[in-house]
Design a protein around this nucleic acid. Structure first.
Lengths: 227, 227
DNA sequence: TAATGTGAACTTCTTCACAGCC
DNA sequence: GGCTGTGAAGAAGTTCACATTA
């Protein structure tokens, strides 16, 4: 028998596991008992072999000839991904992007809760009602206290480029370990802090390149990076 | 002498070239004449070797002992990336996310112009003033006409999950080739159409996984996917 | 001396192909 | 027959190390 207890899961696999979890939830809603790697692959935009490889990383749930047990696998993925309870997130910046993010229903659906937003502009300091309750907006001086109170480890940074680095420094001091960054700047962070950048302009630029059809055969579209 | 005319540039290299272009623009603003791969690497969050490898993909501009000519390289990257003129983009969905995107100054700065937005809800049909002018919002039935008028090849999809696929079908019929998709659904598109997905909840989920510090040594943070 | 360009080594990720189980 | 798990092969991407040139 082979143990692969607590193996570190590869970076891109984690992302795909979330995709599978989403698909499994839909399947469970529809009452499916089992699912094949083939079906899961189709629903997630990857190959069946990839699904099987990924799923063996988290345990051996599949049964040849049958497939994977939908509910059981879903529950297990939730454990692995740490999605079992609501995870608190703070939002930096309550400008237009920030407010759009507060209204985004996807966070709650995937198990995240925007517990607080912060803005340096006093005009933005008001509670902000959303579909899922209300996100209170605070002035920056409350930052440390509230991060501690909620024990938030994740933050979304949606502030102007100029203030991004200083905001991030404060977040890290206050205990934040992961940052989803929308500012078009390269953040300097110490070892052990994870940053995911979302740069919309660069996404478009890349799209544009692979979309140009000037010279035939020159730039065939590649696979999208994130399925 | 070695020609590598019109070689297809790898997927992730394109993304980094945009990063370099951004850094070069700043350097040029500050009056720098030349720049080393080392400096460019530091400004972009990658290794110097990577910068050199990437830059040889687009031509041999570097001079040993000196570095790369800032302005010339910038101009060349613009040509390669097709950033020389303003590229029209249409936006599907004028809800909260859509409106936040209209207000995002980064698009214009990187050479994109949101020429029109569309929404099925009549209440959203009004012109939308932004920092860079006004984005007109139209009802869906104007879609084809306006895409043709502007010859738009790129679209941003910020509509609810239910309508995403049908909107995309229409876009493709109207001539759109590249789609930046914010809806949490797997879009089915024919060969030759490029889709980049931005799924904020999955980004957070991945962050969360690599941020958890329960079992020591278990999940060391990997490098961020997109520098 | 400073810095590029690049083959080779290495790592990471994906696909193939098939043995084995239901 | 249908489907999983996996070793091996392959592809893509990154880093090393050094010859070479300004």
């Amino acid at each position: 028998m082979k143990f692969q207890l607590e193996q570190r899961i590869p970076y891109r696999t984690v992302y795909r596991l979330s995709l599978y979890a989403r698909a499994l939830r839909r399947l469970d809603d529809r009452g499916a008992q089992t699912v094949s790697s083939q079906t899961l692959a189709l629903a997630s935009g990857v190959k069946a072999e990839q699904v099987r490889k990924d799923l063996t990383q988290v345990g051996h749930f599949g049964r040849p000839g049958l497939g994977y047990p939908v509910r059981q696998l879903y529950a297990h993925l939730q454990t692995v991904l740490g999605t079992t309870r609501l995870r608190p997130v703070v939002l930096m910046g309550a400008g237009r992007l920030g407010r759009a993010l507060m209204a985004y229903p996807g966070f709650n659906k995937e198990g995240f809760e925007l517990v607080a937003a912060f803005d340096s502009d006093p005009r933005q300091i008001t509670n902000h009602p959303t579909d899922n309750g209300t996100v209170p907006v605070y002035p920056l001086n409350k930052l440390e206290r509230i991060i501690k109170r909620h024990n938030a480890r994740l933050a979304i940074v949606a502030v102007p480029a100029e203030s991004a680095q200083s905001v991030v420094n404060r977040l890290i001091k206050a205990g934040v370990r992961g940052i989803l960054n929308f500012s078009p700047v390269l953040l300097q962070v110490p070892e052990g802090i994870t940053v995911n950048n979302v740069n919309l302009a660069l996404e478009l630029e890349q799209l544009h390149y692979f979309t140009e059809d000037s010279e035939p055969g020159k730039k065939a579209a590649s696979k999208p990076q994130r399925p």
